[in-house]
Design a protein around this nucleic acid. Structure first.
Length: 503
DNA sequence: ATAACCTTAC
């Protein structure tokens, strides 16, 4: 609870209505035109498997033989191909950077700006800022950047590493690196700060620089959304009021942000009233509005209302998108039962709406949760043929539930499957599995835990202190002192930046 | 990669 919500909440019941009148457009006594929302029903083109083969090659070859492998003249490097390979190696940062570096030395190939951005992102995620900046300077000397996007990436990495001030500094100095500051980059840095919940800082920066940039509705929406994210809806209201006072029209995006904000703070009545008000004033309510409603009511436990809103949108001629179906499916999984969720899944397919990764992951989680691992695995197999291959999250869900059910072997088998190619494990995967190695209290399991720990470090993931201690204790108790010592040596040598990361 | 809706974690 903060000061503002303490001061304003009682009043907000009444005053926010006054605000609605302020922020919403004046009533238009005309009858509504049915709005058609676009759904993304066009499947992505399958990417050629060449990048998978190259990623595998990179993973298997040691640093010495790598340059030989990569200078094979039959390989036709294109920026797109390089990007794809980097994405595949996302969860093996050190290898990804090795790959990038070797190709950078290839005299017949020059990296594109987007590949540089990927590499910088990977380096900064490993907290290897030196490498990130070296790459940025190299980009400049090759005259392919840095672009505003490059700075957005660096800022985001700084913020998520708890260095928000550095992110702001980077923004303020970007012109010194040959990249113009404009309203777009200003909006971007504000958004980066807000999305990482550093809303206070974003708001200060906004107040400090708003006279320098001609702020637009995006600026205000970004800030309002930030306040809503941290459940300070009254502050969002205040920003929006100011927006109106400065003559900037709120848009549908503004309304959707505020609507979501009400759900975040559990103000269902407010949300409902606001929605009705939007209808009354004939805002062009869109699929996002409805999806927000379906999701908001559903996760709040109001399944009936959630379904009613879903039916309402269909009646009003707004076509549900994948996101709408995903919201409903998630709600049914969590607050109703999986069978009904599966029915909605079938329904969306019948209507020609193509399920995406989220759809599958939500439903697979629901099935796992109800103990139906078999159907979960069936669905996972079905993904493959829908050209929607399981990602790390999919694997993590299944592995977690296998382990929770005591089927450690099956969890480990699943993990093995990831190792052989398409989907590299991430930090969560390692944490889930290492945790599972303690349930059987077997010495062998702890050795596996130790190996997993070393492997994750090797791939650029830094285990928490807690994880180290747990594994070390386990190994010591089961008579694996030597292995424990080896891990301790590793622990002391891997500070913030794994040392083998020299570019 | 300029904003709003859909997964995630003990």
């Amino acid at each position: 609870m903060n000061i503002f919500t303490r001061i304003l909440p009682k009043a907000s019941q009444q005053t926010s209505h006054a605000f609605h009148f302020h922020i919403l457009p004046p009533p238009k006594p005309r009858f509504p035109l049915p709005r058609q929302s676009h759904t993304s029903t066009v499947p992505e083109l399958p990417s050629p498997p060449q990048d998978a083969a190259i990623a595998k090659l990179v993973l298997e070859s040691d640093p010495e033989s790598l340059s030989e492998v990569l200078s094979n003249p039959t390989l036709q490097w294109t920026p797109h191909l390089v990007d794809q390979v980097l994405k595949r190696l996302w969860n093996h940062g050190p290898k990804a950077l090795q790959f990038f570096k070797h190709l950078d030395c290839n005299p017949f190939y020059t990296h594109s700006a987007s590949s540089f951005d990927h590499a910088i992102d990977i380096a900064a995620r490993l907290r290897d800022y030196r490498t990130a900046w070296t790459l940025l300077h190299r980009m400049r000397s090759l005259r392919c950047g840095p672009t505003p996007r490059t700075f957005a990436i660096i800022a985001e990495r700084y913020v998520s590493a708890g260095k928000a001030h550095r992110a702001v500094k980077v923004f303020l100095s970007m012109h010194e690196h040959g990249c113009r500051q404009d309203l777009n980059s200003f909006n971007t840095i504000l958004d980066v700060l807000c999305k990482s919940r550093r809303v206070e800082m974003a708001y200060s920066l906004f107040k400090m620089l708003r006279s320098r940039f001609k702020c637009d509705s995006v600026t205000y929406n970004v800030i309002a959304n930030g306040w809503c994210l941290i459940k300070r809806t009254p502050m969002a209201m205040r920003v929006l009021k100011e927006m109106v006072e400065r003559g900037i029209e709120p848009t549908l995006v503004t309304y959707n942000i505020l609507l979501k904000g009400y759900f975040r703070t559990g103000q269902f009545q407010e949300a409902w009233n606001f929605f009705l008000e939007m209808k009354k004033r004939e805002c062009e309510i869109d699929v996002v509005t409805y999806t927000t409603m379906v999701h908001g009511f559903g996760v709040g436990g109001e399944v009936k209302k959630s379904k009613r809103v879903f039916d309402m949108m269909v009646t009003e001629g707004v076509v549900p998108s994948v996101a709408t179906y995903n919201a409903l499916i998630q709600v049914l999984c969590k607050k109703d039962n999986v069978q009904n969720a599966a029915l909605v899944f079938a329904e969306m397919v019948r209507k020609g709406c193509v399920p995406n990764l989220t759809t599958y992951n939500v439903l697979i989680r629901g099935l796992c949760h109800s103990g139906d691992m078999e159907r979960a695995l069936e669905l996972m197999a079905r993904m493959e043929k829908d050209d929607c291959r399981p990602n790390v999250q999919t694997y993590n869900v299944v592995i977690r539930y296998f382990c929770d059910a005591g089927d450690i072997e099956k969890g480990l088998n699943m993990f093995e499957k990831m190792g052989d190619g398409s989907c590299l494990p991430n930090l969560d995967t390692y944490n889930i599995l290492i945790g599972a190695m303690f349930v059987r209290k077997k010495s062998d399991d702890l050795v596996v835990a130790g190996k997993l720990l070393l492997e994750m470090i090797d791939r650029g993931f830094l285990p928490r202190k807690f994880t180290f201690n747990r594994v070390l204790n386990g190994l010591a108790l089961t008579g694996n002192q030597d292995f424990a010592k080896e891990i301790m040596r590793m622990q002391s040598s891997c500070g913030r930046v794994p040392r083998h990361l020299k570019l």
